[in-house]
Simulated scan of single mutants.
Amino acid sequence: MRKFIDLHLHLDGSVPFTTVKKLMREHNLPVPSDQELRQELSVDSSCKSLDQFLEKFALPNQLMQTRHDLETIVYDLLTELKEQGLVYAEIRFAPQLHTKKDLTQEDAIKAAIAGLNKFLKDQKQENDSRPELHANLLLCLMRFADNQNENKETVELAKKFLNKGVVGIDLAGAEGPIPNIEYKPFFDLAKKLGVPYTIHAGEADGPDSIRQALAMGAKRIGHGIRCTEDSELTQELIHDQIILECCATSNMNTKAFDQIDSYPIKKLLHKGMKVTLNSDDMTVSNTNLPHEYKLLEAKTDLTPEEETTLYLNAVDAAFTTPDEKIRLRALIQK
């Protein structure tokens, strides 16, 4: 069975369909037909922008406001990822989005870690010949106008739970209205606290957003695909070996890129760019990582050798331990 690593996977955009139905029943919400529910959770070819894409997160977020919700979703998602052949994943979520009822940000983080730990414990007890799936959490800061306190708290909590299930932070949300550089103080704090980070850039907004992320010290860029609009920036990314967390289907959905046949991950790979392939939002984009690889094999002639390089780039980029990286590199040779 093939092995996969997903470094860019949003929890709220990847709640398994069966888990959504289960939690809707538990919360006594009316459950529509499967077709209607899929339309509410997933985009189709008519999606015109990132903002329209983000509308699909409303229902999942409603189902992520209790400890039980979050623990269940993390556990169920990891179970699904294991079945797909993943051997390592970094799952990101914004704890400040899960405080609409009685949870604090810290409560939300503890619930997600509980789901992760329960999966890891149960996996150890299974009689399963497949490689183990290891996973960690990234905490997202959000691009809102008036959430400075919440973002600072997220950074501080990332430090508190660092290497206890959490391995870094991210900056997410609608890209464009507020420049990335406005959030530099939070990433300066993360750097001071020794918290690794990645930053969404170069998706809905262009090359300048990537330059701002680099100015903030990012060594990993969420998406970053629009670097292709600036050859000088592309060369800088290659020279500095900055990791791009590419998400092909998602980029089509949000119109960051318009033709899958000319999706540039293969071209960037051959230029020496440290690119990786990821799923982003499995449920919203109706995809998963094995599907992403098959899609690029069919549409861009991605080869097994190139896929191995993508995998090894992901190992290098992962916010994990040297021992885990040794395990992941060894798996590709089996």
Rank of each mutant, 00 (worst) to 15 (best):
S209L: 03
G222C: 08
I242Y: 10
T234R: 13
L233V: 07
D188P: 01
D188H: 02
G194E: 01
Q235A: 14
C227E: 04
I210K: 03
A201D: 03
G194C: 06
E203D: 00
L193Y: 10
K184D: 06
E245M: 12
C246Q: 09
G176E: 11
G206S: 03
I243R: 04
R211H: 10
L193T: 05
Q235P: 05
N180R: 00
G217H: 12
K191E: 06
D230N: 14
C227Y: 09
G202N: 00
K192Q: 13
K191G: 00
E203M: 00
G217E: 05
R226S: 11
R220F: 06
A174E: 11
P207C: 00
P196S: 03
C247K: 04
I221L: 13
G217P: 11
N180G: 05
L193H: 05
Y197M: 02
G222R: 08
K219A: 12
L237A: 07
K192T: 11
N180I: 04
P177L: 13
L189A: 04
K192E: 13
E175D: 08
F186A: 04
S231R: 15
E175H: 07
I221V: 15
A248D: 03
L233I: 05
L189C: 08
A215K: 12
E175K: 10
C227R: 07
T249H: 06
I221M: 10
H239I: 06
K219D: 05
A204T: 07
P185G: 06
A248R: 01
D240E: 14
E236F: 09
Y183Q: 07
G206K: 01
R226H: 12
E245L: 12
I225F: 10
Q212G: 01
I199W: 01
H223W: 14
Y197L: 03
G176V: 12
G194Q: 06
L193R: 07
C246V: 14
Y197C: 02
S231P: 10
K191V: 03
L189Q: 09
C227S: 15
A218E: 09
I221Q: 07
F186H: 12
A213H: 06
I178S: 04
D208A: 08
H200T: 08
A248F: 01
Q235R: 13
E182D: 12
A204G: 01
C227N: 10
H223Q: 03
Q212R: 05
P196K: 02
